[in-house]
Design a protein around this nucleic acid. Sequence first.
DNA 1: CGTTAGTTTGATGGTCCTCAAGCACTGTGG
DNA 2: CCACAGTGCTTGAGGACCATCAAACTAACG
Lengths: 244, 244
Amino acid sequence: MTSVKHSPLTRKLSAFVALSDVELAVLERMHQRRRTFVAGRDMVHQGQTAQAAYILSSGWVCSYKLQADGTRQIVDFQVPGDFLGLRSVLLRTSDHSFEPIVDIEAAEVMTSDLLEAFAQTPRLATAILWAASRDEAMVVEHLVGIGRRDADARMAHFLLELGSRLALVGMGSKQGFDCPLTQYHLADALGLSAVHVNRVLRQLREHGLVTFRDGHVTIHDHDRLVDLAEFDPTYLDQIGQLLK
Amino acid sequence: MTSVKHSPLTRKLSAFVALSDVELAVLERMHQRRRTFVAGRDMVHQGQTAQAAYILSSGWVCSYKLQADGTRQIVDFQVPGDFLGLRSVLLRTSDHSFEPIVDIEAAEVMTSDLLEAFAQTPRLATAILWAASRDEAMVVEHLVGIGRRDADARMAHFLLELGSRLALVGMGSKQGFDCPLTQYHLADALGLSAVHVNRVLRQLREHGLVTFRDGHVTIHDHDRLVDLAEFDPTYLDQIGQLLK
DNA sequence: CGTTAGTTTGATGGTCCTCAAGCACTGTGG
DNA sequence: CCACAGTGCTTGAGGACCATCAAACTAACG
């Protein structure tokens, strides 16, 4: 009951719901089955049926879809505190792959654990479903970005969203954050070529907005970056909307 | 108990779950509060909190997000049998707008009705959550399309997906379907300009693949269209995966 | 010290956007 | 009945944005 208090998931949920001791205990139990995965090797392959979901406690993962022509589209990144394959485990369908970007630690959650937890603490269930719904809103925002923003704004928006998500688990601030992604990851996520990603980053850097270098993102001018991206974080933090 | 048997939603769910009389009765009750909306006037505005969800029984709707520069991105279309705002009603957050494309008929479903129905018939609950999960898979596929497919493949994929969805409620076949969308709708959905949509449609028509004209889509060569789009409908019909 | 992964920059060209104009059809009011 | 506006479709010309190809550079690593 002590360790889980500092897990990223607990931290994230705590920002939205005051968790009782009972709920913390349930979360504790969900964190018991700890596992590690090495960078680069898929955890779940496209089409495979998943038996378990995971709560990411350290490291980064991306979920993506591969196309016949070899290109890939990264749908979302998971950072500490995020669920992996939550929907797959509830509905037994998984239609994309998960790849750890660095070595990761995660807690395995079996379907039964999850259903049991939901039955015991409806508030926790709501909180977790809220997190899932937030993930979905991010996918929608991602869609809008790729469909209707040019490369600069897309990149700016992406970095700001990432910063917000990381800040929620204490891994970033408005000044910047650590980020293990390569420019290829950015390209596959943003629907750009890696070459163009590089040029976009250079431009943002030269305009004094943000620097992405050596695994670290430094935000120089948060306001102008928000302007460029038309970043409106309402879809991320609807604090107080829930469980009032 | 007789009318609802032929509602599009019942038809859609029946393709995946054999519905009992009890479940049909619950569905019947959910269809009681009938409402109509006129084309072009938003049902729900961005940011508004929704008190109800809707089951679309006739007509088409699109859900979209507007950007500051006036461009819009259509996230999804709803056709008869689809839910509108299901997530918003469960989680009290709505982050996009809904616009009827033609005059529509829909059944209003209050949160309480839904929760009651879920409590009464877990199978129906699962079926409805499956439908929601399918919607989400479509958004992901949409994301992949915009990020990694060129305009032709994007259009082909979109039309094929739409055809499949409509076929499920008896409103289309491999030969074609009625479709009230304008080329502007297509443009806003596919992340293209209306001008380019027109050119793409011309090309598909001249290549003998598909004709979009006068509110009707005629598929001339289904196989070649599937080829061009790299269309893999697994994400749409996972028949038998569920509730075996 | 060669290999590999990732970054950087240049040159060239294609896809798709923007601007512009014309056409067909519908509904409306004089 | 006709002028007119509104909506949607169609086509052309020019150009922006971004992809592709190519090559050099750095850092890490065995």
